[in-house]
Design a protein around this nucleic acid. Structure first.
Lengths: 189, 189, 189, 189
DNA sequence: AAGTAAGCGAGACGGTACGTCGTGTCTTGGT
DNA sequence: ACCAAGACACGACGTACCGTCTCGCTTACTT
């Protein structure tokens, strides 16, 4: 039962304050402007308390992604019965979600962290791809059964393509130049 | 023509050495391990020569992407006549290209730079998306005319989806876990 | 007593190494060739550790002058009973002391520091003038009582004149061109 | 007669502007804040024009000292007939002269330059000591003849002592703490 | 008059040092 | 054993100057 030696227990308050400060600073100053020192100051915590539990600032972010609601990035797929409409609505919601500069900044920052540290990439994969993939697999089975989609459609590939396109637009800053995101659904047979 | 004021002219040799050193170090040490100091040392150049012409290390990378062959990232789309086979081959080539750790590191580093600095994102957009989009548009017109693809298919969306999927896998480090990249083509109606 | 807040205590070892390195480098390379970077390297210390405690390299030198034996610059006034002979001997000792290039370099360097930073000047004043003045005052009282000197002689003025002449020769590099330093005593009535 | 080859002649205007700018900047920002780059900018001159004629910034200052009125530092010794009164007046004038912050700054800056570069020290020696010494020698001969001073008084030593005391006070910033400068004359028998 | 050559303002070059910020570690006193 | 605070050695930042090296231009002496 969670055996521990003697001594003071880990402060849950400090942990939460650190994760919270990390996300706030990430969305405000970007990944480059994020430093352990600032996180510590903002969280009202000693640096050692951070280094005791995380090996690097990207590890903190990885935990942010996995913690709670995944930094708010996991949007639910609507379930109206019309799979194409649901996907289009999901994409439109994502686009609207990213219109908020703070949230776009957060997403850019997490992308930067993922590009620099494999473990953040893995965390994002776990949170985003796996969630999307499992949601899609169940819905695709229904949709194929009801004739809305052709048989053999690979939910994993679709998840990759949808999330990848969103991520690519975040990186290239291409929100306005490109066609509307929800038209993506038209590509799917 | 090419009027110049007084004073010594900018050294093209220094400029080329800087861009070259930046890409080499990026693929070797990642974006986080890339420092202006090291670029200067490797290029045999004073730091001021860098700061005179570029405001930040990401600006150097943006110029790398736009310069010459776009850091080797722009792969040609084969032209066998079978559009689906060509796209699948292009994706397979991209996957093989990224098997080389140095090239994967370079791509990850550029993704990190894009996530942190809008201008690198714009440069990548210019080099990758626009190139892919225009290549696709010409080929799609032919393919639709010859009945290989259905009418109305949007080349820009397909370009986003293909590049986005590749980029997403680079970020999430998901080369092996996911289905084969060239099956993506199967999604296109 | 000696109350301290939280946090690691200041390293006395680092402080001593910095002062020592500063004096060594000053006598070797002169004030112009003295850099914080080199002091830090020689002392085996980070630059920040220097800037945390001293605002500039001249402040370090000011502390060197005040610390311990005042960089060896404070020479004792002999006490034979013959005040004129003692002063002449003191001046001769000073001249011999400055024959060593390292010590002359140190003295020149401290003069440069004093000329550039008022606080070094104040430190020198404290260490040299005040020491000389108080030594002279006691001796002058005896010498006047015993009829060696006329009444009313101002020890402070004599201290200024003696030290000033030495300093002036250091600055003008005029060790050989001018009359012998110990003849100075002949000026005093 | 001043044989010269072909080519443009040296610009006397540039030379004067450089010396002028050097002295101005020296009194404004001190020796440490004096840079060839700033001299060039202030004088409206290319850096190369400076380096063509002077090897360093201290060489410029040495020439300033020797040029024209010796940067205004050479004060004339009054000639009332009473040698003690004249010396006291000369010291009082010097003290008043140095009350002006710009002139004190200039003197401090030249002292710093002298401490760092032997040639500036030599220039100051030439300008100040030699001038004072020769003035004193003539006056001392008269004063000894008229019984105002005892025989055998060494003008060179007195010059050193007077100038040295003034310089020492400049360096130690000790204008107010010490006894009045013109009382120095009382030391002379 | 044309040719030649040195000096000129301007400004980029390879470097060194600056003073600041951040890293990850260590130490202190307190919980 | 953990915590806030904070000093430590180290490395990179972006800036200021160093002394050198072109540029295109302006004199001035030499044919």
């Amino acid at each position: 039962m969670n055996r521990r030696g003697p001594g003071r227990a880990r402060s849950e308050q400090a942990r939460a304050a650190i994760l919270d400060a990390a996300l706030t600073l990430l969305s405000e100053h970007g990944y480059g402007g994020l430093s352990v020192e600032r996180i510590a100051e903002r969280a009202g915590v000693g640096k050692q308390t951070i280094y005791r539990w995380w090996p690097s600032k990207s590890a903190i972010l990885a935990e942010c992604v996995l913690d709670g609601d995944g930094a708010g990035l996991v949007l639910p797929l609507p379930g109206s019965g019309d799979i194409r409409a649901d996907l289009a609505a999901w994409l439109a919601t994502a686009a609207r979600y990213l219109d908020d500069p703070a949230r776009l900044g957060l997403a850019r920052g997490l992308a930067a962290a993922a590009a620099e540290d494999e473990r953040v990439g893995t965390a994002l994969y776990t949170r985003l791809t796996l969630a999307a993939r499992s949601a899609l697999e169940a819905r695709f089975a229904d949709a194929i059964a009801s004739g809305q989609l052709r048989d053999g459609l690979d939910a994993a590939l679709v998840a990759d393509a949808l999330l990848g396109t969103v991520m690519y637009r975040i990186l290239t800053g291409d929100a306005t130049r490109a066609p509307r995101l929800d038209d993506l659904v038209a590509l799917i047979d």
